[in-house]
Design a protein around this nucleic acid. Structure first.
Length: 229
DNA sequence: GCGACAG
DNA sequence: ATCTTGTCGC
């Protein structure tokens, strides 16, 4: 199977998964901890960090990091091919529970209504929210909502009147847009524009020299992942 | 055909 | 995302 087949299959998978996305609140329990994941790249290595913060205090309670080989180029709309595996590997390292996962990318605000946040939510069967720093699809309305034609797919939160400090929030899975907006707002510190767990995950994922980040390195061959602890 | 395009 | 100098603004 060549790469074009892979891309065609991935796009078809997205269309199918889009039908399974639950765009309403469906939490097992009240939100007490929120997790954020982000991936950074250096040479041929992807370093991914996941951070859990306490919802009411924003205190960081756990940080885990993994290194893995980059297995896909960046293709707009097919972010799942590049980041889903590093993220899945990293989340497995977490020992503490969380009720909501924030993803660095879009949810249903996507050409096929299935961005990385939706994919992670359906794969893990947990509530997820997409938080992106730039727009991939649709257009921003005067009221802040992002639409494609008549369809409301997300919301833009403006933290800075002058600079481009705007984030785009959309449902990943098992969470409503209004809840997503509320949570993102409440876990973004004053003066910051990125919600705390994602902000910390971004910093930690870029810190390639932090010994605390050396939890494991892995690569995948024919569907088999090799991990070096 | 042309432009736009999460990180 | 990453590569990168000086520079604008709080």
């Amino acid at each position: 199977m060549d790469n074009n087949d892979l891309y065609v299959n991935a796009r078809e998978l997205q269309k199918q998964l889009a039908k399974k996305v639950i765009i309403k609140d469906d939490f097992d329990s009240e939100i007490e901890f929120v997790c954020g994941v982000d991936v950074s790249y250096k040479k041929n290595i992807a370093q991914c960090s996941a951070v859990i913060v306490k919802y009411n205090s924003l205190e960081t309670v756990e940080v885990v990091t993994s290194k893995s080989n980059i297995e896909s180029p960046y293709i707009p709309g097919l972010f799942i091919l590049r980041e889903s595996n590093p993220i899945l590997l990293t989340l497995k390292l977490l020992k503490k529970p969380f009720q909501l996962l924030l993803i660095d990318g879009h949810g249903i605000l996507h050409p096929r209504r299935c961005g990385l946040a939706c994919y992670m939510g359906i794969t893990l069967d947990i509530p997820t929210v997409g938080v992106a720093k730039s727009l991939l699809y649709g257009s921003v309305q005067e009221n802040g909502f992002v639409k494609y034609n008549k369809e409301v797919l997300g919301y833009s939160i403006k933290r800075d009147e002058h600079l481009k400090k705007i984030i785009y929030v959309s449902t990943g899975h098992k969470v409503s847009l209004s809840t997503s907006i509320g949570v993102v707002r409440s876990i973004t510190k004053i003066g910051e524009w990125i919600p705390e767990p994602l902000r910390i995950a971004d910093i930690r994922s870029k810190d390639y020299d932090n010994k605390e980040n050396d939890q494991f390195w892995s690569f995948t061959i024919n569907d088999t992942t090799i991990r070096f602890l």
